[in-house]
Simulated scan of single mutants.
Amino acid sequence: MATHMRRTLLVLHRATSSSLKNAEASLDVRHPVPLFLPIRTKKRYFIPPAIGIKGKSGGYTEDKARAAGIVYRQEYFERPINIACTAGIFDPYIPPEGDARLSTLSKEGLKQRTEQIRQSAASQLAIRKIKEHDSDFSTKNFAEKAQEIFIEAHNVLTQFNKEKLHSLVTERCYPEMTRGNRYKTIRWKFVESLEPPRVVHARCPDMVTKGNLYGQVTVRMHSKQTLAIYDRFGRLMLGSEEQPKDVLEYLVIERHLVNPYGQWRLHGKIVPSWAPSKDPIIKTVIIPGPDLKPGEEFDALNYEVPKPAAVQWSK
């Protein structure tokens, strides 16, 4: 019985193999050797894009993430806000043209004085609000105090004491005073005061909420100062240590009135439109030297600085 079954199976196997060979020959189908059978893996819903394709194609979008079932976090463009000081000067004081040049006895000087008295009504209301939060505030003594803050802040700036400078100037004024002074040497000195400082303007604005009050007082200061700025190589860039100059400045001192521990700090300066332009800064330029070989020394007496070749510009 077993032999009979074996014979039938061999006959069926030969018949099927011969039929398959005939079908492959008729279709001329050739299988690669070896034959790899694909196996289905886990279905991937989301495949991250390759590097460099983001700029070329549409890239990753929120719709694709939602279709893939991924929670897309919303991005908030938040800007930090500092409530210790305001972001600018509210209703800035407009200095009269020709200030510190016209005497009060002249006709134009009297016109300026009367105009200042007319504009002082809003300042009086602001001074009353400031006195409600600061009982020690006085326009006579505050001008001298503002001058002391100004002198101390500039002395600390020459020493690059950041911690002390933060307590004397606001967060708005700090970057304006320290920008570009990293590799420079500053020599500043207050010589004398030509006119006693006085309060010329006062405002009491609020920020964020109605009761969050800030006091801004503008002080006029006319003095003699010396300023000299040296670059990192020790070369003079601006000013002089020996020659003092007359400087007329309008300082804005600010304080957060609601904060019981707030202090009056330097907030900025008001530069009038008629003020003279500043002196240009002398920048250092590298002079190309000779190409020395190892072991050679540079002889400065026998070396001539090469002059640039003349260039003919065509119109």
Rank of each mutant, 00 (worst) to 15 (best):
M221V: 15
L248Y: 00
L227P: 02
Q225L: 13
L236W: 04
Q243T: 13
T226D: 05
G239P: 02
L238W: 09
F233H: 10
D231I: 02
L236P: 11
R235G: 07
M237R: 09
G239L: 02
I229N: 00
T226C: 15
L238C: 06
H222W: 06
Q243E: 15
G234R: 06
S223N: 10
F233A: 05
R235F: 12
G239T: 02
E241P: 03
L238A: 05
L248A: 07
R232S: 15
L227R: 09
V247A: 14
K245C: 07
R235P: 03
I229T: 05
G234Q: 12
Q243M: 14
R235Y: 13
M237G: 00
K224W: 09
L238F: 10
M221R: 05
G239Y: 01
M221S: 05
L248P: 03
G234F: 08
P244Q: 07
D231T: 09
Q225I: 01
P244W: 06
Q225M: 15
M237S: 05
K224D: 11
M221A: 02
Q225E: 11
L238K: 03
R235V: 11
G239F: 02
E241M: 11
H222K: 11
H222M: 14
S240I: 07
E249C: 13
L236V: 00
S240Q: 12
F233M: 09
I229Y: 12
E241A: 12
Q243W: 11
G239K: 04
Q225P: 04
E242Q: 14
A228G: 03
T226V: 13
F233Y: 02
M221Q: 07
L236C: 04
I229S: 01
Q243P: 12
V247L: 03
G234H: 05
S223W: 12
Q225R: 14
F233E: 00
G234P: 00
Q243L: 14
M221K: 00
